[in-house]
Design a protein around this nucleic acid. Structure first.
Lengths: 228, 228, 228, 228
DNA sequence: TATGAATGAGAATTCATTCAT
DNA sequence: TATGAATGAATTCTCATTCAT
């Protein structure tokens, strides 16, 4: 675990090249804040709340450790901020899908593909959620703003199913909540568990080819399930 | 981290031949070892590798902390041992399903139900795997014995699919690896992400009723996918 | 042990240019660093690397134990730093002798007396070297800067011998390396082994009188050896 | 620093080959004791009292750790036993030299060569003495039997010097104690400090050629010193 | 805002030694 | 005699957090 450690004292040294000196008095503050958030996201995703190191975050962010406390008060609050931001982004993207304008089957296929592509594009979110689930979502519960964003999505899905039943493209009796969970899970599990699955099967599931295969497979599974 | 340490401890375990001599209660090596393993499983599942405390494990196991190092050398090696044991148990159970004696559709339904029920019954395994995936399965890769156990299952599944295609109960063209991943994922995701999902939807997904609903839903999704 | 860790801390030390700003008494990094080094020197000299206690060093230095790791990363690297410093000091003093300006015999007598007096004045160095030799100089090898400092001294000695041979004050055929080792050893051994010798002979070899006798004896031995 | 550690538990395993089964009820006891002493000598020589590990000694000795306490009561008493044995052996050998039967110069040359050869042949003794000196010979003082063995040697040397003065082969005024120290030191220092000297000079002083050179050099230095 | 220095409460790990058999 | 299991007191090292400037 030792390998090449670098002294805390030493790593701080500014190189002669670095300081991109923000305009005098300018909004360097916000930049520092965002640097910290980004660094923290990476660190928490990789190591979880307990495993993450404040020092590492500061170093990665190119900021002084003290700044983390200045902007976020504590490691835990920084964690909540990271979580909240990542989650909000996902929900925001989801809500911008405008599914109601599409034909029922198209709407659902679009959602499935979005879920897959979003998971593929945001591996850190997956890991953050994994970590949160291990902690029984204790911190997500604190992120008040998130509560409301979701039920709406399931409601939307319910509406789409109803429309599909009406126009005969979707069979009746489908539980929208569990459909949503399945849509999420079929993509999420593939991405979240790639490491253990790859280890177990001795086969790299993360390759581009395998990923394309998976995407089609997920669409197929959901489509088959909707078939009247 | 720690290059290749070898857990030769295993060789120490009593073989089935040597009688479990120790008088009642005291100085039973194997018992101490198992107590530590069980306590560690709980601790690692709850808090992950980084968050787990060796002190807590020792206390829970009713063992002296020193014994952990005596039997497992380090926190990390204990973690690997826990992981290996949990994983092996699952695969052993899986392999005992004797799917090949069943009709194709029955076989797959049995596997789906097994996956669901096993996940329901082993929440610690789910959390351990979650933690492992966050660490990119770095430790699972060290657990050499596991490598082989898996491909066989996918092969079995392939055989079942072929048989189903032949007797007309299953449609052709299904990728057995991704079918396996879907079967796993539909159950796993529900259990692993219950905390965040429940938080997001403000709805307790862990209730018995919801669980029964989910079980049926999963069977339905897979069954629909197999339909010719 | 510890592969190749690099002590970049050194680069941190205030250059001669940066003014020693810190207010009187408090928060003076360089002072803390030096306090730790001094305390460590005493502790390592007395107890060796294995026997030395980080706690003791911190306490003696009047520093928080954490500071040792802050400045030196580990007990071992602190040990190397101590070693390097003591060794460098000796070599620096040695190189300041300006032997080449003296007549050959005077030059060598000066060196002999310097070696004796320096050993007498730096008992900690002797013990540090003793400890290092027990460890097969494993750590001294890591102190890269030292490599070059030495051959020069033997070269100088060779030059002096040649000059002495020329002007007829020194006999020919003397190996400068072994002469150097003898000059060192005659003093060093007396100081390093005083404890066991005193115990064995039941006679205090460390007294001032005995020390003066020894000094003259060493000069006589070397002088006699040089005689043509 | 970790490298390949082997569990305590594991290392104990007897190989199928090992047990040289001593005759039933035989004097295996003494052998165990000697094995422990030998293993301890190696360990204490290499690592000093503080750095030595009881576990390592037991393992090297092929004995159960408990036996060390059975035979020697504690790590410290084992250390004293080792020291005492090594020291006694040296003095015994020394006293068997029968110097008084030789001509004065021959006697002293014999002693010089003995010291050199004995040091060469017993590197562990050198390291043990180094360790003892670092501890200020605290333990050697406890080894009661040793007190007397030594003064006699210096007395013998005094006698030889007197005889040499009388027959004109040795100059007058030589202090026998310091002569003895010089004789010892010229060899001892070379062997004890080979590691640091080699590191400093970047030159392997331990080679056979270098060693032969050194031996002759030491004889020459002492001989020159005795010359009338 | 920003920074380097400092801290105290842990956390993992090690070690000599003793127990029970 | 001999052994494997167990222990408690250190010991090294880590980490989030705060101080002084």
């Amino acid at each position: 675990m030792a390998a090449a450690r670098v002294t805390e004292v030493a790593t701080k040294r500014k190189s002669a090249l670095s300081p991109p000196l923000p305009g005098p008095g300018a909004r360097d503050a916000e930049k520092t804040r965002l640097n910290i958030l980004a660094a923290a996201e990476a660190e928490f995703a990789q190591k979880g709340l307990a495993g993450a190191r404040v020092d590492t975050i500061a170093e990665t962010a190119g900021a002084n450790k003290r700044m983390i406390y200045y902007y976020f008060r504590s490691k835990e609050e920084l964690y909540v901020a990271v979580l909240e931001r990542a989650y909000t982004q996902m929900r925001t993207n989801e809500s911008e899908l405008a599914l109601s304008h599409l034909k029922p089957l198209d709407a659902i296929r679009t959602l499935v593909e979005f879920k897959f592509d979003y998971s593929a594009a945001h591996p850190k979110l997956i890991k953050l959620l994994n970590g949160e689930n291990m902690l029984n979502a204790e911190y997500l519960k604190q992120a008040k703003r998130l509560r409301d964003m979701h039920t709406s999505l399931v409601k939307t899905l319910g509406g789409i199913l109803d429309a599909g039943v009406k126009d005969g493209t979707i069979r009746a009796g489908i539980n929208p909540l569990h459909l949503y969970i399945s849509i999420s899970g079929l993509s999420y599990f593939y991405f979240s568990n790639t490491p253990t699955l790859s280890a177990a099967f001795g086969h790299n599931l993360a390759s581009a080819a395998e990923r394309a295969t998976r995407r089609q497979h997920v669409v197929d599974v959901i489509t088959a399930f909707l078939r009247p």
